[in-house]
Nucleic acid binder design. Structure first.
Lengths: 179, 179, 179, 179
DNA sequence: CATGAATGAGGTTTCATTCAT
DNA sequence: AATGAATGAAACCTCATTCAT
């Protein structure tokens, strides 16, 4: 990819994450990325378009490690790996994940990426529900929804205080409870 | 309170929750509240001031039901009541709570209410840690942090889909796991 | 009407007429009108909206003197008066009329005011056709279309060189030919 | 001429005619012409330069058929041919002629081509005046100015609605009146 | 000849805020 | 207490033009 395009994207992720989408201006992004304001519009049709692009980047990465062999079935090992991997990714790409939670908690912004999000969460929820059903859970759908809520909650808190958050200990609790 | 002031506040909460703080304009609030733009500045010094005021309103309500007898000790019954009560409040004041999660996931906005937030979460975390220590948890601090993360995660998901979320079932799981 | 609103409109007419709609910026208008850029948007939703408003102003004036007793019939005297009046108006409100021809010769701009224009020209053409039919013209519709074309052509040239254009002599020719 | 240059010119004429000079961007032209933006600047120094070039193209064609034997005298047959020819050209090169009226009705744009326009209309007006003088008109100059106004008016209307305009019938009227 | 990345000035529009009434 | 006209900074975006390739 064009290096300047990449610079724009990286800078946008960082600023969106720290300041929020609507509180980040194109000027800020251009300044910090060291390019002209106009250049952004050579690569993206609008600020919203940039957000969509960024969201897709991360969504792809997220799915990559969920059911990696793509057989539609989540094994115990795959599940554990996925849990570990998500928190690893959060630590590595903190900005992207802050932005992600940003988006999810703001209906007005969620709408911008609504269709993409559906494509992503739909299949995931299904596989999770199947997993919990096979495991013998009484109400597998409720368990799946509880699980993703826990993941989101922990993820959010982890991101907000990576240094002090007892993430190892919490991951162990999650695996013990859900896997 | 003056009815117009109240109208402004309620409208602001609703709009902030739906559209985000920075994506909501004073004009929008004034229009929807049926008052003039200028009036807002009779009651609040600025848009940020309005946000702080709103945040405080909810923070007070939140603390009210945590350790209601204010003895610094959380009993099992108080804990259960608190968990139930939080989700009840979320269902009743959805807008306020959406806004709350909005704020927490946006560092730039969190800063606006940072001092108020500290006053609120500090004591709560301490009492929770004490509770888990008394219960015999190995790492009571980690457990406390895990607990609030779960509460936030579930709260968020509940707010985003109140109608379909299996909240009763999930509350039971939480109580079973943490109390 | 608010004096500043009026100032904005008058200035806009003058600048649109001289420089064209797309070649006139809101900044220019605001500067020359001695108001802030933002104020325009208190009165008009957009630049296009301002143009529509201006167009309507003139369209109303134009119709006012066509068939003044609104009986749907054009008498010989009314017709003569109308012809004289149009050129009088052009001399008085040169800017508005320059703008009018501007609009008509630019399809992209005509579209902005298309519906308003239709309301205006439809009935006029009908009455003119009736007039020429009563007069015994062979092809009254063609005569009507010829007449308005002549009016537009002469109007345009008159506006472009008011001082030297032999308008009295030309009006006489027009009346002799068409009335 | 280089085919790409020609494509640029044709596309520019079409877009200028439909959208107006200032409302047409170089990008639009380049896109629709299927060339790069940069290429335009190999052939033309600027957007204005392109307009001048286009205007000249048409002006040349216009003069070609006015007094074709270039003897400075307009015969009756030449005059009739000229009238017929102009409307024929309009039907053939609609875009160019729309653009022409566009230019004439916008002082700011007229200035761009002002010198070229003078070279063109000056001699034409003189010959026309001579023609009407020879014909015995009382005020030959007024007649000439009336004539060109009629031609412009009819031309404009014809271009705006070629399909329905009763152009044959109107041409007959014009010839009857002026030749 | 031809491209398209890159620029930066300037376009339209929004918006928090002030202030005379 | 309440209005809304007015401001001006800053938002998003467009565009003519340049230039390395």
């Amino acid at each position: 990819m064009k290096p300047k395009k990449e610079k724009i994207i990286d800078t946008a992720i960082a600023l969106f994450a720290d300041n929020g989408f609507h509180n980040t201006s194109i000027s800020q992004i251009a300044n910090k990325a060291g390019v002209s304001k106009g250049l952004m519009y050579n690569y993206f049709e609008s600020k919203e378009d940039l957000l969509k692009y960024i969201f897709d980047l991360g969504a792809a990465k997220l799915l990559e490690n969920f059911d990696p062999n793509r057989d539609g079935v989540l094994t115990k090992e795959e599940f554990i790996f996925y849990i570990e991997d998500i928190f690893y990714q959060m630590q590595k790409d903190r900005n992207y994940w802050m932005l992600f939670f940003n988006i999810v908690t703001q209906p007005a912004i969620t709408q911008i990426v609504a269709d993409r999000m559906m494509e992503m969460v739909g299949p995931m929820m299904k596989e999770l529900t199947d997993y919990f059903r096979n495991k013998g859970c009484e109400d597998p759908e409720a368990e799946a929804r509880y699980f993703v809520a826990v993941m989101d909650g922990v993820g959010m808190h982890y991101l907000l205080d990576q240094e002090n958050y007892p993430i190892r200990s919490v991951i162990k609790k999650i695996i013990k409870e859900f896997v």
